[in-house]
Structures are given as structure tokens and as C-alpha cells.
């Protein structure tokens, strides 16, 4: 069988805030069309890992490669080209408050493509329809509930049909039904659009529904990287405790 080339390769990554080390010795290969879930307790470094992977924070050491190219050493223009192929769903949604949902999703299409207004309009409408927000397209973010904001932010992250999607706590603060529907949507993005997805979460139900692989962090150290089944049989006390306590 042909060996798949990783979409993301992280080697010996160290992340620091000032002099304090937050993450050390992170080594990960994320394969195409996989959903990788970064999990761990509060303060374990999940969001820090995600932001260091995306150069939102500069890692103190190590390398991060997207599609074989080191994003930490590439210049701004080259990195912007990489960013155009990635989408990010922020924990708070991070929608621009002064403009409507329609305009929020229109921004990357207007700025980065030469598409006609009619084609852009159809792309925006279908993305909002996919997340179930067709009727809210002319509303402003301040008029939406938390779950709607998350879904709108996902529509914006999908605007350019990126092959790589990052989600920071997509289900946090959502009711179980909305959370499950968001998970369904993420799964269909993987299945239908062949997306590679990296998700930070500590929602156990969500992890069971969507994870192909998990990265388990504990106090800034990567304790485990592999499938969920492997994690459960690995006999690592912190992981066993995490799944045991969260059982329902």
C-alpha cells in the first residue's frame, strides 16, 4: 500500500511564554483526511499547541511543516499562500462584529479570489446553508446565540474550501444537540470534501464521535499520539483517569 505523506509534520517543538516552558518535545505526523483531536485537561497546553502549529505564536524550537514545507522559516508571502489553504474556527468564533454574517464569509473570497460577484454570492449562500444559517445571513454577530456564532465561524473557515481545517473547542459551551450537529458537520467535511482536520477539545462525547487520532497532552508533555482504541489500551494512568472521570 502506498504510504501517505503527512499534511502536517511537527518535530521537537518547544513552546514558551517568556521563560516558562509550556510545551516540550512535540512530535506529530498528521495524515491527510484524518481528524486529529488534541485533548487534555485545562491548562495542559492544547490551545498553545494549536497556535504554535499555526505560527500565531512563534515556537521556541523545532519545526512545523505543512505539505512538506517548513512554515516557521518561510517568508510572509509564502506563509500567506499556505494560510489560504487552511481554515480556522476560533473558540469564540472571532467573527467581525461590525459586518453581517454574509459579509464575514465574503471577506476571504473578495480578498483572495478573482471570482465574480454572482459566483461568490452562491458560495456564501451554500456555506451558510450547510451550517443551517441561511435565514441569518444578513444578521450581525451580536444578534446570534453562541452556537450560531460557532456555526457561522465554521462557514467562514470553509469559505475558500480549505483542505486543512483547525477548530479550537468547537463544542465548548454548546448544548449536546448543537454540539452533536456540529460534529456531524465536521465529519461530513472530512468524508465529502476530503479535509484534514485538527480539533482542540476536551468534550468526551465529541472525541468519541469524530476522532481518528488523538494527541493527549498533560502539563505540557505529549503523553500519547495514536488512535482512540490504542489510547484506551495503552495503560497510561492520566489517559485512563481522563476517560474514566468523563464517563457518563
Amino acid at each position: 500500500m502506498k504510504e501517505l505523506k503527512p499534511v502536517i509534520e511537527i518535530r521537537n517543538m518547544v513552546a514558551k511564554y517568556g521563560t516558562k516552558t509550556i510545551l516540550s518535545d512535540i512530535n506529530v505526523d498528521i495524515l491527510p483526511q484524518e481528524i486529529t483531536v488534541i485533548l487534555g485537561g485545562s491548562g495542559s497546553g492544547k490551545t498553545t499547541l494549536l497556535k504554535n502549529m499555526l505560527r500565531l505564536y512563534e515556537p521556541a524550537a523545532g519545526s512545523v511543516k505543512f505539505w512538506g514545507e517548513d512554515i516557521l522559516t518561510m517568508d510572509e508571502n509564502a506563509f500567506n499562500e499556505v494560510l489560504k489553504k487552511t481554515g480556522m474556527l476560533f473558540q469564540s468564533g472571532a467573527l467581525l462584529n461590525s459586518i453581517s454574517l454574509y459579509e464575514n464569509i465574503s471577506i476571504p473570497l473578495e480578498m483572495h479570489t478573482q471570482l465574480s460577484a454572482k459566483v461568490r454570492d452562491r458560495m456564501i449562500r451554500v456555506k451558510l446553508s450547510l451550517v443551517g444559517l441561511s435565514n441569518a445571513m444578513y444578521q450581525f454577530p451580536s444578534e446570534l446565540s453562541g452556537g450560531m456564532k460557532k456555526r457561522a465561524a465554521l462557514a467562514r473557515a470553509m469559505a475558500m474550501d480549505p483542505p486543512l481545517l483547525f477548530c479550537d473547542e468547537p463544542s465548548a459551551g454548546l448544548d449536546p444537540i448543537t454540539s452533536a450537529s456540529l460534529d456531524e458537520l465536521i465529519l461530513s467535511l472530512k468524508e465529502q470534501f476530503k479535509m484534514t482536520i485538527v480539533i482542540v477539545t476536551h468534550e468526551l462525547a465529541s472525541i468519541h464521535r469524530i476522532a481518528d487520532k488523538i494527541i493527549f497532552l498533560d502539563s505540557g508533555t505529549m503523553l500519547f499520539y495514536g488512535t482512540l482504541d490504542e489510547a484506551k489500551t495503552a495503560k497510561i494512568p492520566q489517559i485512563d483517569h481522563f476517560f474514566e472521570v468523563g464517563k457518563f
Partner: peptide
Amino acid sequence: IDSAGVAFLDE
């Protein structure tokens, strides 16, 4: 094909 392609085909 991606969503831009489908939107174009719709047109």
C-alpha cells in the same frame, strides 16, 4: 471541483 466550481456551474 470545489464550491466555486459548483457555483459557476449553477450560473
